[in-house]
Simulated scan of single mutants.
Amino acid sequence: MNTFKIKPVVYFDTDSIKYLNNLKEKKSLIITDPFMVKAGFINKVTDIFKNNNVEYKVFSGIRPDPPVEVVAEGVKEMISFKPDVIVALGGGSSIDATKSILAFTMKILKNNESGYKRPLFIAIPTTSGTGSEVTSFSIITTGNKKVSLIDENLIPDVAILDASFVKTVPGRITADTGIDVLTHGIEAYVSNKASDFSDALAEKSMKIVIKYLPEVYKNGDNVEAREKLHNASCMAGMAFTNASLGINHSMAHILGGTFHIPHGRANAILLPYVIRYNANLESGECTKTALRYRDISKFLGLPSSTVKEGVISLICAVNVILGLTNTPKNLKEAGIDRQEFVSKLELMAEVALEDRCTPTSPRIPSKEELITLFKEAYGD
């Protein structure tokens, strides 16, 4: 029996942050990163809380690729303060960390039979990329390894998509996160758990990224394009939280954990190589996955008179996006040292093979095939 679930209530468009005026809860923990505090973005939240006499506390210790130690600090804050609402403000790292903080807090307090009830969970993304505000995924780091937590209880109750939080995001981050959205859409569409429902959301998100990402990268002041990308990120999140992802993310997780490449950039570099691998045109067979890639090319308006042409067109389109956004086309261009890369290649392949995104990949690789894919993505 197949299922499709959309849990959060989504408030979108500029000034949707005003939803916070409706909160009945009066004790809030805001979980964010130092930049959100320094840049004053947090004031958009705290000013509303002050006006409505909401008691609040700020935990601003979130770092990129949040390590388990930061999650532990957040858990201490949660247990001490016991809020009845938590607000995750920031990019994917802040929202993912909040999910893990909430999960571990509830487990600890449940074991202690404290009677503390799960707080209302509100996510306010400040980048247009991860879709974490509507997903059951949380990625945290332990050592050099990124660990995926997947549980429906991690999904926020409310998502606020206010484009005013993303209108000043730098071009480089806009590109990395935007291509991450494209990867989410593509992987959800070819996943072995894809459905008519996830397809619809994945398709729309891909169309938006292809149309608006180059424009936003070139002109960040385009408010309409910003709003479109913000919505696309959320839609792609809804698609992949139901259909899951594939080896593009499995490889990106360990690549980012090992070499600290931004997640979206790692996905972007890997994407053309993974599409080629999954399509498996060399086999001489017309695979289901190749047909799905051809379908993507069709609805994106790319040349696709044959399956092979459709697959190649999609790969070319991705490479064009990489070029337009000045994204490295291989890992060598991204600055990874060849000797260090080779020394960690086998371990990275082993970790990627065990990643929780791998089972839903349309083509399940061997360890040797993953090693080959990593090598191809490194470049000459």
Rank of each mutant, 00 (worst) to 15 (best):
residue 53 N to R: 13
residue 115 G to P: 11
residue 185 G to P: 02
residue 211 K to T: 11
residue 254 I to P: 02
residue 169 V to Q: 06
residue 54 V to T: 14
residue 272 P to K: 07
residue 160 I to M: 08
residue 28 S to P: 01
residue 218 K to E: 10
residue 92 G to I: 01
residue 73 E to G: 03
residue 320 V to T: 14
residue 203 E to W: 00
residue 338 R to F: 13
residue 183 T to Y: 03
residue 33 D to N: 11
residue 44 K to W: 02
residue 238 M to D: 07
residue 89 L to Y: 04
residue 104 F to M: 05
residue 31 I to C: 08
residue 135 T to Q: 03
residue 139 I to P: 00
residue 211 K to F: 09
residue 280 N to G: 09
residue 1 M to F: 10
residue 209 V to L: 12
residue 157 D to Q: 08
residue 129 G to F: 05
residue 377 A to F: 03
residue 74 G to H: 03
residue 78 M to P: 04
residue 166 V to G: 05
residue 253 H to V: 10
residue 115 G to W: 10
residue 331 L to A: 04
residue 103 A to I: 02
residue 195 S to F: 02
residue 337 D to A: 12
residue 201 L to K: 08
residue 370 L to G: 03
residue 116 Y to H: 06
residue 110 K to I: 00
residue 114 S to Y: 01
residue 239 A to V: 02
residue 192 N to V: 12
residue 200 A to R: 13
residue 169 V to T: 13
residue 97 A to Y: 07
residue 343 S to P: 14
residue 351 V to F: 11
residue 15 D to A: 12
residue 378 Y to C: 04
residue 194 A to G: 15
residue 247 I to N: 09
residue 23 L to D: 03
residue 287 T to S: 12
residue 145 K to P: 06
residue 116 Y to M: 03
residue 285 E to F: 10
residue 340 E to I: 14
residue 357 C to W: 05
residue 155 I to Q: 07
residue 90 G to A: 06
residue 359 P to K: 08
residue 161 L to C: 11
residue 215 E to A: 15
residue 152 E to V: 04
residue 300 L to W: 02
residue 11 Y to A: 09
residue 99 K to H: 08
residue 18 K to V: 11
residue 125 P to F: 06
residue 262 P to F: 08
residue 161 L to K: 11
residue 21 N to D: 14
residue 193 K to F: 12
residue 370 L to A: 08
residue 298 K to P: 15
residue 364 I to L: 13
residue 281 L to P: 06
residue 146 K to M: 10
residue 354 E to K: 15
residue 117 K to G: 13
residue 273 Y to W: 13
residue 48 I to H: 00
residue 155 I to L: 04
residue 219 N to T: 09
residue 283 S to I: 05
residue 132 S to Q: 03
residue 19 Y to E: 10
residue 84 D to I: 03
residue 250 S to H: 05
residue 368 E to K: 15
residue 192 N to M: 05
residue 208 I to M: 09
residue 256 G to R: 09
residue 316 C to S: 15
residue 85 V to W: 00
residue 173 I to G: 10
residue 30 I to G: 11
residue 24 K to S: 12
residue 22 N to R: 14
residue 142 T to F: 08
residue 324 L to D: 14
residue 103 A to G: 01
residue 21 N to W: 04
residue 356 R to K: 15
residue 219 N to E: 14
residue 281 L to Q: 09
residue 81 F to Y: 14
residue 119 P to T: 09
residue 272 P to E: 07
residue 76 K to W: 00
residue 177 T to W: 13
residue 165 F to Q: 05
residue 114 S to W: 00
residue 126 T to H: 13
residue 31 I to E: 05
residue 17 I to L: 10
residue 65 D to Y: 01
residue 323 G to L: 09
residue 113 E to Y: 13
residue 6 I to C: 13
residue 46 T to S: 12
residue 270 L to S: 03
residue 107 K to V: 00
residue 367 K to Y: 03
residue 371 I to L: 11
residue 310 G to P: 11
residue 315 I to S: 11
residue 244 S to L: 10
residue 328 P to F: 03
residue 331 L to G: 01
residue 263 H to L: 09
residue 166 V to L: 11
residue 146 K to Q: 12
residue 211 K to E: 14
residue 380 D to H: 08
residue 137 F to L: 12
residue 238 M to A: 02
residue 250 S to Y: 02
residue 163 A to W: 02
residue 226 R to N: 11
residue 356 R to C: 11
residue 152 E to R: 10
residue 214 P to R: 08
residue 318 V to Q: 08
residue 334 A to L: 07
residue 193 K to S: 12
residue 183 T to V: 14
residue 235 M to W: 12
residue 268 A to D: 06
residue 283 S to E: 09
residue 141 T to L: 05
residue 41 F to S: 15
residue 17 I to W: 00
residue 142 T to N: 13
